[in-house]
């Protein structure tokens, strides 16, 4: 067998492995393009007339419990973009301070931050839930708020910011450590202010870290379910919530057309992200502790 032929077979095997892992998602994509009757058909139909009916009904109202999905989609977008942007800024400032000034508790704080991400969500949510409820009632009794603050949009946004901070901090500290302090010194010698050095000298050099932190935190917040399910009130519920609840409200019978169309819409964002930002996948999936490319 020629070398070229062997290479071709090798590549074909790799492609088959990749497609094998994608098959379940492909199957749901097919379901999302079917009519209700086709989804429930026995035997399952592989060849059918594709239609966008499910997407249309999912986005613009249908007879299940959740008639309009747009608000959930908006919540997902606003909460994940907002909290991740906030977390990136907060962590960038802190990462610079940790990296350059090395305050005494640096390593300990970095460790604590990382371990907050290793705790099961159901353990954290018990505590946050207690605290948020008590704060809200306290604020209401003081007459400061009429709507829930912590169990409303601001509280959930803050929670997701904290959820994104450890990872951004780790990744950005790693990148800033990699920028030699000589750049900073050169800046100071030439009369630059410290803020100028921070934003005009260091920031441009850690752009890959910022992008990786942003993209992967976006994916993590976008995918989050348990906090949203338990803490979320009106105006904070995201699509995973809608998926889980839409499931029940259909009266025990799962509306598979709705589930398929909505989840395909929802997972397309992370998929597109890892297509375009594949080089950050490693640093992203290891919370910024391992760098490199695959």
């Amino acid at each position: 067998m020629s070398r070229a032929m062997r290479t071709r077979i090798y590549y074909a095997i790799l492609w088959m492995v990749a497609i094998f892992f994608f098959l379940p998602i492909f199957w749901i994509l097919l379901a999302a393009l079917k009519t209700d009757a086709d989804i429930l058909a026995v035997p399952p139909k592989l060849i059918f007339a594709p239609t966008l009916e499910q997407f249309n009904k999912t986005l613009f109202g249908r007879g299940t419990g959740i008639s309009n999905t747009i608000p959930y989609l908006v919540n997902s977008l606003v909460l994940s973009l907002g909290s991740v942007a906030l977390a990136t800024v907060v962590s960038f400032l802190a990462a610079y301070a940790f990296s350059r000034y090395k305050p005494r508790a640096t390593n300990f704080l970095m460790f604590l931050m990382l371990s907050t991400r290793m705790v099961p969500a159901s353990a954290t949510v018990v505590a946050i839930f207690q605290m948020y409820n008590a704060f809200d009632i306290g604020l209401r009794n003081l007459g400061l708020i009429s709507q829930p603050f912590f169990r409303g949009f601001p509280g959930v946004l803050l929670l997701y910011t904290m959820f994104s901070i450890p990872f951004s901090l780790w990744i950005l500290k790693g990148f800033i450590d990699g920028v030699s302090p000589r750049y900073d010194e050169t800046g100071f010698v030439n009369g630059a202010s410290r803020l100028h050095v921070l934003f005009k000298v260091v920031l441009p050099q850690v752009r890959p870290g910022l992008i990786a932190a942003f993209i992967f935190n976006l994916i993590f917040v976008w995918n989050e379910f348990l906090f949203n399910f338990i803490l979320g009130g009106q105006g904070t519920q995201m699509i995973p919530y809608a998926l889980a609840v839409g499931l029940v409200n259909a009266g025990g019978n799962i509306d598979w057309g709705y589930v398929a169309a909505l989840s395909i819409l929802y997972v397309s964002l992370p998929v597109v992200m890892i297509f375009f930002f594949q080089r950050y996948l490693l640093v992203g999936m290891t919370f910024g502790t391992v760098r490199g490319e695959v």
């Binding site: 790799l14 492609w15 492995v17 990749a18 497609i19 892992f21 994608f22 379940p24 998602i25 199957w27 749901i28 379901a31 994916i219 976008w222 995918n223 989050e224 379910f225 995973p240 998926l243 889980a244 499931l247 799962i254 598979w256 589930v259 398929a260 989840s263 929802y266 997972v267 992370p270 998929v271 992200m273 890892i274 297509f275 594949q278 996948l281 999936m285 695959v294």
Partner: peptide, 27 residues
Amino acid sequence: GRRVALTLLFTPMVITPVASGLFWRLI
């Protein structure tokens, strides 16, 4: 097409467990 193949391969780990749980319930 390595990039596309790797995207297909790595997709299962970046989608929300809510969605993948539902996918598999249908399967």
